[in-house]
């Protein structure tokens, strides 16, 4: 076991890990931050996406020790201190961009990374950027609309008028 230290959602944390301890395992098991989900073992589903030093990564495909000293952001750190949803989270609720919720943390973190790189993405850019995030419930339609809305672009209302 090796002690690893990092900053997670602005808080200094540490824990004992093995070489094989994945960042996702460290977050879920050591820190109890179970919002980061694991939906596959081939680095494709993206339910585990977190930000490491500001970049979206798949936390199931990175060892905890590789994140030593890093600044890590997870879904648990996205809402305001008073619990209010951030712009992206609120848009996902407003536009029904989630159903079972399992892929949602990774979707929100990927969306945040996209909007940092590209504040006004087109529909095609959003769809292409989500290549590494699989959702089985929504058919992506409302996820795309939520991200459009979060970027301040016009989106038709969700339900039939």
């Amino acid at each position: 076991m090796t002690e690893v230290k990092m900053t997670v959602n602005g808080r200094e944390v540490s824990g004992d890990v093995e070489g094989r301890t994945l960042l996702s395992t460290f977050l879920r098991e050591n820190l109890g931050l179970t919002g980061t989900h694991v939906g596959c073992d081939t680095s494709q589903c993206g339910a585990c996406v977190v930000h490491v030093n500001g970049k979206a990564v798949k936390s199931c495909t990175m060892f905890a020790q590789e994140a030593a000293g890093a600044d890590v952001a997870t879904i648990e750190g996205q809402a305001g201190a008073d619990g209010s949803l951030n712009t992206i989270q609120q848009a996902f609720q407003d536009y029904h961009g989630l159903q079972c919720g399992f892929c949602t943390p990774g979707m929100v973190m990927s969306a945040a990374a996209l909007l940092k790189e590209n504040p006004k993405p087109t529909e095609a850019e959003i769809r292409n950027y989500l290549e590494g995030n699989i959702c089985r419930c929504t058919g992506y339609h409302n996820i795309v609309r939520a991200i459009m809305a979060a970027s301040g672009q016009d989106v038709p209302a969700v339900a039939a008028e």
């Binding site: 993206g46 996406v49 979206a56 798949k58 990927s110 990374a113 950027y129 290549e131 590494g132 995030n133």
Partner: peptide, 9 residues
């Protein structure tokens, strides 16, 4: 290559 998160690693 891959997807954005993969390209970051």
């Amino acid at each position: 290559i891959g997807d954005p998160a993969v390209r970051n690693r």
